[in-house]
Design a protein around this nucleic acid. Structure first.
Length: 560
RNA sequence: UGGGGCGUAGCCAAGUGGUAAGGCACAGGGUUUUGAUCCCUGCAUUCCCAGGUUCGAAUCCUGGCGCCCCAGCCA
């Protein structure tokens, strides 16, 4: 295990700030989601960073909903987001905030700006504003309203608030510099009229502040010391600082930017995730194939594994694409150590042990975790008719196949050595429907007293004791590592085989007693989780979280 | 042709003038009643390129090149 916690650049900044005595009251961060969608693994990176730094430096981290756009936001998202942050393992204590709670303060700040002659009410249309903004290479031009008297702007702004103007008729703009090389400084709009009911403030307001104005001032009001955001806001930092420098704020926060996460074989843009949900490509925000936290949770990922993932991917300003294998690795690593082992047969093939008494049954000892005796053992019932995995039998087996094949002996895990003597086929289809085998009573438990070895060990269940279950096999949602690459529409590379539902699975009987969200290793297959939504004792449903590493699959794939 | 960032292995990532950490992936070997786990071993003569400074450069200087972001009354 990797024990080198990196001193990434944010830690260095904080260390330096502390050393220089810039944070006398400790460090204070915040996670500021907009409640317009569900949180995904990319947000987890930000959450772990913000709450993580606060915890590490014994500071505080607020949860603040950045809800300044009533057209997109909704209460159902604020609830889902809180659930997800809590599930991830973080606690904002009594510091649950909403930017919308600051609307009155923000309005006052705007007045303060106008009074200083640093903001003005503009009467140009959205199109006119866009045209006068200039381009990347050409400067913008001043609005004819730019030098409107302070008193007039003040009056107009109050009347905007009072609802005297139609949507889009007027805006409040910061008076900075229309010729600035940084477009964000070309007199940005800071308030717009939007006669839309807000999910929290209702119809109290018909003017709403913009992000740039809201974010920095909210940070200042909350005494945030380190405002961590993603790289696309780097260009906004001068604006962030401009508001703070020009207003009488209770504190002086600083913004720092890091690169957002890109993960192979998925998409992490809110717009695209919404589209996947709304167009029915997935069953919902919590579909186990989704990179959302609720999706990962339903799939069976643990909060700890997500946190570990966020630790491993590092924190820099580089554009990064994280290998899908990293996520698989962290969950295998955790569950490999923690998950109790059970046997389950996903695609059953009937096996009859001819020389085993018809009505006999016995209970065999099986370890719940071979590497961790403290997890104990259990009794597994054995009888004449069993089921094994179809993949564990091959009629014309290549040399390297060391599972069951006619005439060869294998071990049934924790049970007996068996030999396949006869293959029974369906008369019409020719399909193998049953294997007739014999067992060696001396090999009870899986060891031969004469010391003979078998190369293969396979899992099994007893026909009369096993319970039926549905198992859902998940694969990556996209067939291309980067669905946005090239000209193609990202939706053309949605993997049509990302979900396979298996209905005739047979599981050890005690698995049917599991609680929803309980995780197990199905030996030789992978890690599985009792579905959070659909699990029922009468009809168990398991989701495959991830397979075990499978060298054989690799070998057999190379052969074909 | 503007501004802001970023370039160290297939993917992440340390390193800040003293001779390229670590993880993932991959390959080989050992242990094994899970083809799993675990354990070894290998995996950048070179840090985007080219010059320069220096006894010594991924680190400093100069000049190139490449990639990402910005022209919402979104965040």
């Amino acid at each position: 295990m990797d024990n080198t916690t990196s001193t990434h650049f944010v830690r260095k900044i904080i260390d330096d700030d502390i050393r220089q005595g810039r944070c006398p009251d400790g460090i204070h961060t915040r996670f500021p989601p907009e409640p317009n969608g569900f949180l995904h693994i990319g947000h987890a990176k930000a959450i772990c960073l913000n709450f993580g730094m606060a915890a590490e430096y014994r500071g505080k981290c607020n949860l603040r909903f950045d809800d300044t756009n009533p057209e997109k936001e909704d209460m159902k998202y604020v609830e889902a987001i809180q659930d997800d942050v809590r599930w991830l393992g973080f606690d904002w204590e009594d510091r649950l905030f909403f930017a919308s709670d600051y609307f009155a303060r923000l309005f006052e700040f705007a007045i303060e700006l106008i009074e200083q002659g640093k903001a003005y009410v503009d009467g140009m249309s959205a199109e006119e504003i866009r045209e006068s903004r200039g381009t990347l290479t050409e400067p913008g031009t001043d609005s004819p309203w730019r030098d409107r008297p302070v008193a007039e702007s003040l009056d107009l702004f109050h009347r905007m608030k009072a609802g005297e103007f139609a949507d889009g008729k007027l805006v409040l703009r910061a008076k900075i510099n229309m010729r600035a090389a940084n477009l964000n400084l070309r007199d940005p709009v800071i308030y717009r009229i939007r006669r839309t009911s807000h999910y929290r403030t209702g119809d109290n307001w018909c003017i709403y502040p913009m992000y740039d104005f809201t974010q920095c001032l909210s940070d200042a009001l909350e005494h945030v010391t380190h405002s961590l955001c993603s790289l696309e806001f780097e260009d906004h930092r001068p604006l962030y600082d401009w508001f703070i420098d020009n207003l009488d704020t209770p504190s002086r926060p600083r913004q720092y930017e890091f690169a957002r996460l890109n993960l192979e074989y998925t998409v992490l843009s809110k717009r695209k995730l919404i589209e996947l949900v709304e167009d029915g490509h997935v069953s919902g925000w919590d579909d186990p194939r989704m990179p959302t936290l609720s999706g990962l949770r339903r799939r069976g990922f643990t909060p700890k594994s997500i946190r570990e993932f966020c630790e491993r991917i590092g924190l820099t300003k580089n554009d990064t694409w994280i290998d899908a294998g990293v996520l698989e690795h962290v969950i295998r690593d955790e569950l490999g150590a923690d998950a109790p082992r059970r046997m389950a047969v996903l695609r059953p093939l009937k096996v009859v042990i001819d020389n085993y008494p018809d009505d006999k049954e016995e209970l065999l000892d099986a370890a719940n975790h071979p590497q961790d005796p403290s997890m104990g053992t259990r009794k597994v019932p054995f009888s004449k008719v069993l089921y094994i995995e179809q993949d564990d039998f091959m009629e014309d087996a290549p040399k390297k196949f060391f599972r069951l094949t006619p005439g060869r002996e294998v071990r049934l895990r924790y049970a007996y050595f068996i030999t396949c003597n006869e293959v029974v086929r369906d008369d019409r289809t020719g399909e193998v429907v049953e294997l007739r085998c014999s067992y060696d009573p001396a090999t009870r438990g899986g060891n031969a007293p004469d010391g003979r070895k078998v190369k293969g060990t396979i899992h099994w269940v007893s026909a009369q004791h096993a319970r039926p279950a549905q198992v859902r096999l998940y694969d990556r949602l996209f067939s291309d590592a980067n669905p946005d690459r090239g000209e193609q529409d990202w939706k053309t590379c949605i993997n049509p085989d990302s979900l396979e539902t298996l209905d005739g699975c047979l599981i050890e009987s005690d698995l049917a007693q599991a609680e929803s969200e309980q995780r197990f290793q199905f030996e030789r297959l992978g890690y599985f989780c009792a579905d959070r939504e659909d699990w029922q004792r009468e009809s168990p449903v398991f989701n495959r979280i991830v397979t075990l590493r499978d060298t054989w699959a690799k070998i057999s794939k190379e052969r074909s």
